Simulated scan of single mutants.
Amino acid sequence: MRLARHIALILSFAAPAAAEDFSLSWPVDCTLGETCFIQHYVDDDPTSGASDYTCGSATYDSHKGTDIRLRSRAEMAAGVRVLAAADGVVLGLRDGMEDAILTRETEAKIEGKDCGNGVVIRHAGGWDTQYCHMKRGSITVTKGERVTAGTPLGEIGLSGRTQFPHLHISLRKDGAQVDPFDPDGQITCGAPSQTTLWDRDIPYSAGGILAAGFAPLVPSFDAIKAGTADEAPARDAPAFVLWAYAFGGQSGDIMRLSITGPEGELIRHDAVLDKDQAQFFRATGKKRRAPQWPAGDYEGRASLLRGGQIIAQTQIRADLR
C-alpha cells in the first residue's frame, strides 16, 4: 500500500474539513525542535498500514493525533504547560490518573482511559480539541469554563497509554477526525498540502535527536530517559563516553558519534540501526590508558543520518580541569 501511494496516487479517505476562520495555536509552552519535538502525526492511511501526511513513517496504525514530546521525565517533573489551541468552552476533563510508563502489568488499570488525564474543548463551528496524557493534579480549568487560545490547561505528563512524557492533541470536526497538517483529507504523496490549520509554519520532523551528553560509563537507558545521565567525566574517570538519545529511527539509519579533546579526535563511531525504533540511544567512548585525561576542552558531536543525509545533529562541550 505504501509503495503504491508513493507513485503519485491521490487518496481521499476523510470528508474535507472546511477550515474557514478556524486555526490552532501551538499548544505547549516549549520551543519546537529544542525543548520539545513532534514524534508522531495522525495516521492518514485508512488501511491496516500507517503513514503520516507526507506519506512518511512518523506515525503508527490508527493514531488519531499529534504527539508533542519532551526530552526527559526530569523536564516533565519541572513542569511544561499545556495551552488551549483555540478559544472555546471546556467540555470535559479527567484528572487523578498516575503518571507512569505503561507496562503489561499496569495495562489493565487504564482500560478505557487511554488518554489519561486530559481536557476536551468545544470550539465554534463544530470543532473540538482533546489534550491527553497530562500530569496528575496539574489541570487548572473546570468543566464549562470559557478559555481563549493560550490559556494554561495544565502540564504535560505521563498518564494513560504512553511510554514517554508528551501531549497528544487530537482535532475533530462534527465528531470526525481531522489531521491539522492536512485538513482537506486529500493525500498527494510527494506533495503534501500547503494548507494547514496551524497559525504558524511547523516543519515536518522525520526523526530527531532529543539529547546528548557525556558520562564516565555507558549510562542506562532509563537514566537517559529520566534526564539524569549527563555527567562530565572527571580527569581520572575510567572512560570518556558520549551518548545520544533519539526518536523516529528507521532501519539503516546511522547515528554518528565523535569526541574531540585537547589533543585531537578521541573517537569516532557509526552505529547502524538494524530495525525501526520509536526511541533509542547509542553510545561510544574510550577507556582511559593514562593516569588522567588531558585537561582542556572536549566536544561531542552526534548526527542522525538517513540515506546519507543528516536529518538531525547536536553538539555538546565539557571543560576538564
Rank of each mutant, 00 (worst) to 15 (best):
D61G: 01
R268T: 11
V141N: 08
G137Q: 08
A223Q: 12
G213K: 03
D184L: 09
P180M: 05
H168G: 04
D274W: 13
A149K: 02
A312T: 09
D297G: 01
L11P: 12
T47H: 00
Q130D: 14
L305W: 13
F164I: 01
F13A: 15
D95S: 13
E34T: 00
A232Q: 10
W198Y: 00
K275F: 11
L320H: 15
G227S: 07
L171E: 04
Q186M: 11
P291K: 15
K173A: 02
A295I: 09
S62T: 06
G137E: 13
A191E: 05
G92N: 15
Y245V: 04
W26Q: 08
H63G: 03
L153A: 13
L24Q: 11
G112I: 01
D114K: 13
G213M: 03
Q279G: 11
L210E: 10
R317W: 12
Y245P: 07
D236L: 09
T103K: 06
F181K: 02
G96W: 08
V141C: 07
Y60K: 04
V82Q: 05
R235L: 14
P216E: 13
H133T: 06
G96F: 02
L3S: 14
C36L: 06
M134H: 08
W243T: 03
D174G: 09
L158C: 03
S51F: 14
R81T: 03
G185D: 11
A212Q: 11
Q177I: 01
W127Y: 06
D61F: 09
P294Q: 08
R317L: 04
G307F: 01
Q250K: 14
A176I: 02
A74N: 14
T54V: 02
A74F: 05
P16K: 03
Q315T: 10
F22R: 13
H63P: 06
R256K: 14
V141W: 08
E263D: 15
G296V: 02
Q39F: 00
I311N: 10
Q315M: 13
E265L: 12
E231C: 00
A244R: 11
A278W: 13
G65T: 00
D253E: 12
A229G: 10
G296S: 06
P46A: 02
G185W: 04
S23G: 13
G125L: 07
V147K: 03
G175P: 00
T228R: 08
I310E: 15
G118A: 03
F164W: 13
L24R: 08
I121P: 13
L32Y: 02
A85C: 02
L9E: 14
Q315I: 06
G208Y: 08
A78M: 05
K143L: 15
Q177G: 06
G92V: 08
Q277G: 14
I310N: 10
R172M: 03
A50R: 08
H63N: 03
T196H: 07
D182S: 09
W198V: 05
V28Q: 06
E263W: 11
V80S: 01
P294H: 03
R321Y: 13
R94W: 12
H40P: 07
A223R: 10
T284R: 06
P192M: 04
W293C: 08
R5N: 14
T188G: 01
H133V: 06
V147N: 12
V241N: 05
K64H: 05
F221S: 04
K113Q: 10
G126C: 01
E155G: 09
L3Q: 15
A50M: 00
L91C: 12
V218P: 01
G175R: 04
V272E: 15
T196Q: 04
D29I: 00
A244H: 04
